[in-house]
Deep mutational scan, measured.
Amino acid sequence: MAEQVALSRTQVCGILREELFQGDAFHQSDTHIFIIMGASGDLAKKKIYPTIWWLFRDGLLPENTFIVGYARSRLTVADIRKQSEPFFKATPEEKLKLEDFFARNSYVAGQYDDAASYQRLNSHMNALHLGSQANRLFYLALPPTVYEAVTKNIHESCMSQIGWNRIIVEKPFGRDLQSSDRLSNHISSLFREDQIYRIDHYLGKEMVQNLMVLRFANRIFGPIWNRDNIACVILTFKEPFGTEGRGGYFDEFGIIRDVMQNHLLQMLCLVAMEKPASTNSDDVRDEKVKVLKCISEVQANNVVLGQYVGNPDGEGEATKGYLDDPTVPRGSTTATFAAVVLYVENERWDGVPFILRCGKALNERKAEVRLQFHDVAGDIFHQQCKRNELVIRVQPNEAVYTKMMTKKPGMFFNPEESELDLTYGNRYKNVKLPDAYERLILDVFCGSQMHFVRSDELREAWRIFTPLLHQIELEKPKPIPYIYGSRGPTEADELMKRVGFQYEGTYKWVNP
């Protein structure tokens, strides 16, 4: 592979701008107003304001973009700056750019259920340069409990009458099928589907988006991507930290609602779906819905739930269990780990287990898709061969690698495990991989909904998990304890083995 010439960040961002501006969906010269509902909250200060700053800094926003914060707290732009700027990672050389960014910011205080507050917000936006005809993007960085009041008031008082209007809704989209349907029906009564952007930030990850290209742009994968060759698929999300004093919020939802029903299920769809007619948003989402419709409700015998306990040999936070978090209700049975087996009941995947695993306070930070292939028929190497695996590593250190057998150097035919490896950090030294939120917010500006969740996708996802969630809430089974920093409950490994996964433990990928 030829040595790549190092590029400056300015040059890299210039390439990104060229890609972005050559499309006809990006209205570079139009006025846009980006409204952050819930501007005083954690999500706004840690993710949304920093993301908008990065896009502005790199010249990736339309030229005439204004940012308006809205929340109940009586704040000023200076207050917003004070709480969000520490997350910007701005350099001293960017000081003038930073001043320009905050000059485009404003803030309006108001209630979430008060019509007069929204009329005041609308008047404020109209007073901005060309504000009355601007395109408006409303980001709901809010708890779902206020979605209905907020969307109703936005629709009645704050819509642009000339430009387009788009609304970005953060997960969780309800707690179960019934609450999700209620919320979807409410929002759909106010906005068209092409105006609604239900954001799952995992769909903005580079390697998640790469799944489609790997599958449908490489001839070698087509013939082997089926039940005849693939023994099982494992989708993993692991965090090495616990709730760390923020367990009160987590306890309301648990690990299945927080990660599995959305992030992991979306990745499953991209692995299992048929080739779409095109890369058009609805063509892709149509195929994802077909996959979900082929999955039956989760069966309790295919589920393992766990909850982390303190590690007596650990240090600091590792010595504390979930129930030691003062914000967690006493005696909570909320799971911090889950392993679930699903089956896609169609011709391509009949009988292939899709194993979804996620948890907190585990032994490493990792998100990946792992396809394990069947054993080689007619073994001539005296059971020395391990199964081939194709691994798409989402985070950290984005990579695609194939675990395969090669001859060990020497005189004899002794096979050993090795890999074919594409590590993004080595291959793409001159490429700026956008943060997931950067990519998705740019998608909203461009009107691309491919990486957002459609209402029928959402409904099918909740259909699969709601009976299990209701059973857990009714019966309150005690989750299996696992030690902070471990791989999780051993019962999860036993479940995976029972459905056909072979864990060798003899080879570990190392970032080159």
Rank of each mutant, 00 (worst) to 15 (best):
N229C: 08
D114L: 11
R246W: 02
V208W: 03
S29V: 07
V77F: 14
L128Y: 09
S132T: 15
I230M: 07
G247V: 07
G41C: 02
Y107A: 07
R215N: 00
L20T: 15
S117K: 10
L211D: 03
W53T: 02
T145L: 06
I224A: 08
G248C: 05
Y147T: 00
G14I: 09
I33M: 10
P92E: 10
E63R: 12
G245S: 09
R104H: 14
A231K: 14
L121H: 03
F102L: 07
F26P: 11
Q161A: 15
L190Y: 07
F34R: 02
R104I: 13
Q161R: 14
F66Y: 15
F21N: 13
K89E: 15
F241E: 04
N226A: 07
E244D: 15
H201P: 01
Q209P: 04
N218R: 04
G163P: 05
Y118L: 07
D100G: 10
I67G: 01
L61R: 01
I35M: 08
E239C: 05
G38C: 03
V77Q: 11
A127I: 11
G14T: 15
G247S: 06
I35Y: 00
L98T: 05
G14Y: 15
L75A: 11
K171M: 02
N135F: 08
I162G: 11
H129S: 13
M159T: 13
P144N: 03
S73D: 00
G242T: 05
F21L: 13
L177D: 09
R136I: 07
F26G: 13
T31A: 09
V169M: 05
E170L: 01
E156D: 14
S180E: 05
Q178N: 13
F253E: 02
L211H: 03
T151V: 10
S8T: 14
I154F: 08
F34I: 12
D113Y: 14
Y197T: 01
F173K: 04
N165A: 11
T151L: 09
I67D: 03
L55W: 04
W164M: 08
E94W: 05
D79R: 08
F66V: 09
S117E: 11
E170M: 03
P62S: 07
R227M: 08
F237D: 03
Y197K: 00
D200E: 04
F101D: 04
L130W: 14
W164C: 08
S157W: 10
A217P: 02
E244L: 13
G41K: 04
D30Q: 13
D42F: 01
L183E: 01
I196K: 03
S189G: 14
L142I: 07
L235E: 02
A71D: 01
D251C: 03
C158A: 15
R182G: 13
E244W: 13
Q209C: 08
I187N: 02
E99I: 08
N135A: 09
R198V: 05
R192F: 09
M212F: 07
D24M: 09
R182N: 14
H27V: 14
I48K: 04
M207G: 06
M212W: 06
N105Y: 08
P223N: 15
D79A: 09
A25Y: 15
I224L: 14
Y49F: 07
G174Y: 00
E170I: 02
I15L: 09
D113N: 14
N126G: 15
D30R: 14
R192L: 12
E206I: 07
M159Q: 14
V213N: 05
E148W: 12
R246L: 02
F253V: 05
D228I: 07
L75Y: 13
E193I: 03
G242M: 03
D200N: 05
R81E: 06
Y49G: 02
D30E: 15
R74T: 15
F253C: 08
E170C: 03
D24R: 12
C13R: 15
A44P: 01
G254T: 04
L137A: 11
I196F: 05
D194G: 10
I15A: 06
L183A: 02
T65V: 13
D24K: 11
I48R: 01
R104W: 05
N64C: 11
S29M: 08
T65E: 00
